[in-house]
Design a protein around this nucleic acid. Structure first.
Length: 931
DNA sequence: ATTTGCGTGC
């Protein structure tokens, strides 16, 4: 094809065309009265009289120049009007040889007969690669030269304006139309409505509809479509109903779009009525309507009806298959979706990128993140190129899985295929790097983005903020403002969340105030971020205070808030408040939320109510990995290893793949029960049978397990054989075991590492002092205490609390003494003397002070858990169990005393310490004295 | 379509 040289170059060649003109709407065709301006020059080939037959022209159409030559001949002989078909041939020829302007000029000045012809012109124009913009340019130019167009041409131009969103020209065309005639025909009115709907808003289009004198079916259909295109679902549906009342017939496109509206609005009844209409007017064979019906039923949660419609469709095309497959996927029936997918393949329908993307995003949304990667591989090996949507889903899955390396590979693919210029892909990349803790790469991708949307900014800001880089986050916030992007509630919430996660409660509250000063209202997410931050950092009381503030401001809690609050209840063992929240969950239908139910299981087990934890667990219809894990953990912290293992077995029967946390729970249940062999078994099998690679947490569990069982040397060997550097938890486990078994030598080795790794952790010094005291090595006790004091480390307060009559009573080594202390000690002495009659001997080994035995007994009596239990005994009545929480690890003397108390006063005592649970009943403890 | 808040362990 030759380079396009516009028609006027040839016909106006006597006028030198030197200046390059700016393209849009300002080209200068010397076109008007073409025949008159044409110079009287003879073409080089001798002009023979042309026949009127079109074929004579077409025979000569070998190149653009030959087309022009023929055109010139035709004009010269003034045979333009001879045949409209001749004109068509020339237009087609110009299009074929790529001279789109000449084609458009001929189209406008030549003739324009009917709508059908225009559409085929537009089709042909685009088919040969012409940009419809050029049609508008030619029209504009002719219009400015004063050419008068008929209304049909104007309507045609209006259609293109509408398509190209050329509001200015469209309004100009409307002005021409008004000048021409007052009563526009239906087609023109439709074009006008279409234009206003797309370019000036639905309201203007509706005005055109209202002002129209006659509302025929074409106009009704267009009016409804205009509203639905603008996602005015309710308005569109309403108009459809009005149209029905007037017995105006709807066309297939309108019906399919109205069905879409029924889906969006959840208007099942209306949807069914339209289904009835479809059957009555025998429109069922229309595949567009069929597909819309399937979608409508899917959106209204009626997948079974959708399936019936699908099954009854015999001319299923690809969109139809895609609809039913995406329906199953949206509702989470991934297996059904695959079944249909395979069925589709056997019916010789090839999936398209939409099908694949639907599978990708569906598996991501339903948490099957690994499958997303498998589907990607499958589609690639089937020869499909992932597009921006595919990449976005895959990146999200990779982000969730934490597969940074996979993410980088996808980044490479993105770069190779030039997709990095796509806004959404780039945003997903930023987010992938942010969530995988690679802020440097996130920043690099961000810096390369030529235009950034608010999501990209927010993603990066949240990355810096959550990692505690508040300065960088604030700088970005200011920078985005400078670049003219207004921070939204998400931006501020990211800051709130970051501050809350770093215990910067004041700053987080400041952000909430800033949201208000910007004229926005802090929403449920802002408050929940603050509350969950408090719950996770141990500021449980503050969590409840902010809950009250939030409710005062009229913000209602949602399931996420509830999960955070339950965490606070679990942390404080606030069983009664936890139960209140459980009621709230039932009232507000939060029970079905997997996060809430998991948090409930955790709350009940940490508040000492294992039965309720089990009940919640059993009633869970859909058990997630986390819910199985928290139930196993629940049994584990009670030392109920048999039960924990049986939950694990049931989990495997349910085909749920265990993860690292499952094995930590299992190993710790073995640890709490001294099941060394079982522990080894799980440790060995977790990698070989389940593909879960042991982390340092698993190793430290094993050290604990070995050590507590008395295999201290083996524990040390095990530490030395570890594939990673042992951390403080590992050495801490060894030191704890050494203290239990009184092994000073090994303990000193562990302590040496610990003092290096955690020089400011008072618990380590306390453990070592305790170990020395057991062996009566008082000088070493003093030396360790001096070392600790030299480091400026202080042993924090030890506290226990018990709830009596809706109030929490705290007994602390640091705080004020309890006002009823006298009464408490009176009862405690009484109990001790009763116990002594039954054979109780105070276990003074727990006291690491070099003082007389009698003094040691006094120290033991002051242990906070004893005071808390005693207070519970005197201020509550049987059979209410007593629940005591302690923030350290219960000593063996308190353990013995609690057993006697449960026997003497016939009370169940639940005691939660920093490590696990003890349930005392009838003089026995659930831990069987192994803890 | 892309961005903010939630559960399981140590």
């Amino acid at each position: 094809m030759e380079a396009a040289t516009p028609l006027y170059h040839f016909i106006s060649s006597h006028q030198p065309f030197t200046q390059k003109q700016p393209r849009r709407y300002s080209t200068n065709f010397g076109l008007i009265n073409v025949a008159e301006t044409l110079p009287e020059t003879s073409p080089s080939t001798s002009p023979s009289p042309l026949s009127s037959s079109q074929f004579d022209y077409e025979k000569e159409f070998h190149s653009l120049n030959s087309v022009r030559a023929m055109h010139a001949k035709m004009i010269k002989l003034s045979r333009e009007r001879d045949s409209k078909r001749n004109m068509q041939s020339f237009i087609s020829a110009y299009l074929e040889f790529g001279d789109f302007q000449s084609a458009a000029v001929l189209f406008f000045v030549g003739f324009a007969e009917n709508y059908l012809y225009w559409n085929s012109f537009l089709e042909e124009f685009s088919y040969f690669g012409g940009n419809p913009c050029e049609i508008l340019e030619v029209f504009s130019e002719l219009h400015s030269k004063g050419v008068n167009f008929n209304t049909e041409i104007l309507a045609f131009v209006l259609k293109i304006c509408s398509k190209l969103r050329d509001t200015w020209l469209g309004l100009e065309v409307h002005a021409c139309l008004i000048k021409k005639c007052f009563n526009l025909d239906v087609y023109t009115q439709c074009a006008l409505m279409n234009f206003y709907g797309r370019c000036c808003g639905t309201e203007r289009a509706n005005k055109v509809f209202k002002e129209a004198l006659i509302h025929d079916s074409l106009l009704w259909n267009e009016a409804i479509l205009v509203n639905l295109r603008d996602e005015k679902w309710a308005e569109g549906l309403q108009m459809f109903c009005e149209m029905q009342a007037l017995h105006v017939k709807a066309n297939g496109l309108t019906i399919s779009k109205v069905l879409q509206a029924c889906g969006k609005l959840g208007a099942l009844d209306e949807g069914k009525q339209i289904h009835g209409y479809v059957i009555r007017y025998e429109l069922e064979s229309n595949i567009l309507i069929r597909t819309a019906l399937i979608n409508m039923y899917v959106k209204n949660d009626k997948i079974k009806i959708a399936r019936v419609v699908f099954d009854l469709t015999d001319n299923r095309n690809l969109p139809c298959w895609n609809s039913i497959i995406s329906g199953y996927i949206a509702l989470g029936y991934l297996d059904h979706a695959w079944e249909l997918f395979n069925e589709m393949i056997t019916s010789n329908i090839k999936p398209d990128i939409i099908t694949w993307n639907c599978l990708l995003s569906g598996h991501f949304l339903h948490g099957s993140h690994r499958e997303v990667l498998a589907i990607l591989r499958r589609m690639q090996s089937a020869g499909y190129q992932p597009n921006r949507n595919s990449i976005t889903s895959v990146l999200q899955a990779v982000t969730e899985l934490g597969y940074l390396n996979h993410g980088k590979e996808i980044h490479c693919h993105v770069i190779r295929n030039g997709l990095d210029y796509d806004l959404h892909v780039a945003t997903s990349l930023v987010d992938m790097y942010v969530k995988n803790d690679d802020l440097t790469s996130a920043q690099a991708v961000f810096d390369c983005m030529t235009n950034r949307n608010i999501c990209a900014w927010n993603s990066l800001i949240s990355g810096y903020s959550c990692k505690g880089h508040f300065e960088k986050a604030s700088n970005l916030l200011n920078q985005m403002k400078e670049e003219g992007i207004k921070p939204d509630i998400v931006t501020y919430n990211s800051m709130v969340s970051g501050y809350s996660a770093s215990s910067c409660i004041k700053e987080a509250l400041g952000m909430i105030r800033r949201i208000k000063s910007c004229g926005m209202s802090p929403n449920v997410i802002s408050w929940t971020s603050l509350i969950s931050g408090c719950s996770q950092q141990g500021y449980f009381r503050e969590a409840f205070e902010f809950l009250i503030q939030m409710q005062d401001e009229g913000i209602k809690v949602n399931s996420v808030t509830i999960s955070s609050l339950l965490q606070a209840c679990a942390g404080l063992s606030l069983l009664d408040i936890g139960k209140e929240i459980h009621c709230l969950c039932i009232r507000n239908n939060f029970i079905g939320d997997v996060y809430v139910s998991t948090a409930l299981i955790d709350m009940y087990s940490k508040c000492g109510n294992l039965e309720n934890a089990q009940k919640v667990f059993q009633r869970l219809e859909y058990k997630t990995l986390a819910s199985w894990n928290s139930m196993i953990t629940g049994f584990a912290i009670y030392g109920l290893s048999t039960e924990a293992i049986s939950v694990f077995d049931r989990m495997r029967e349910a085909n749920v793949q265990p993860d690292a946390i499952t094995f930590i729970a299992l190993l710790s249940s073995c640890k709490h029960s001294g099941l060394l062999d079982k522990g080894w078994k799980y440790f060995d099998h977790m990698k070989t049978d389940f593909g879960v690679i042991p982390t340092i947490e698993h190793y430290s569990c094993m050290v604990d397990l070995l050590g507590r069982a008395g295999y201290l040397d083996e524990a040390l060997d095990f530490i030395q054989s570890m594939p990673m550097e042992p951390n403080a938890a590992v050495w801490g486990a060894l030191l704890t075991s050494c203290r239990i078994h009184g092994n000073v030598e090994l303990g000193e080795i562990a302590a040496e590492y610990l003092f290096k790794l955690e020089p400011y952790n008072a618990a380590n010094y306390a453990l070592m002092m305790n170990l020395y005291a057991l062996s009566n090595r008082w000088k070493d006790v003093d030396r360790t205490r001096d070392k600790m004091e030299a480091m400026g480390v202080k042993i924090g307060p030890v506290w226990s609390w018990v709830q009596v009559n809706q109030r929490i009573h705290i007994f602390s080594t640091a705080g004020k003494t309890h006002q009823e202390e006298g009464e408490i000690y009176f009862e405690l002495y009484k109990l001790i003397s009763e116990m002594k009659k039954l054979g109780y001997i105070p276990d003074t080994k727990c006291v690491c002070q070099d003082i007389a035995e009698v003094e040691k007994e006094k120290v033991l009596l002051a242990h906070t858990e004893k005071l808390a239990i005693t207070y519970g005994l005197i201020r509550t009545t049987s059979p209410a169990p007593i629940r005591v929480i302690n923030n350290t690890r219960i000593c063996s003397d308190c353990h013995t005393v609690a057993k006697y108390m449960s026997l003497l006063r016939r009370r169940e005592i639940f005691l939660k310490d920093g490590v696990r649970f003890h349930h005392f009943k009838d003089g026995k403890c659930s831990c069987c004295d192994f803890w």
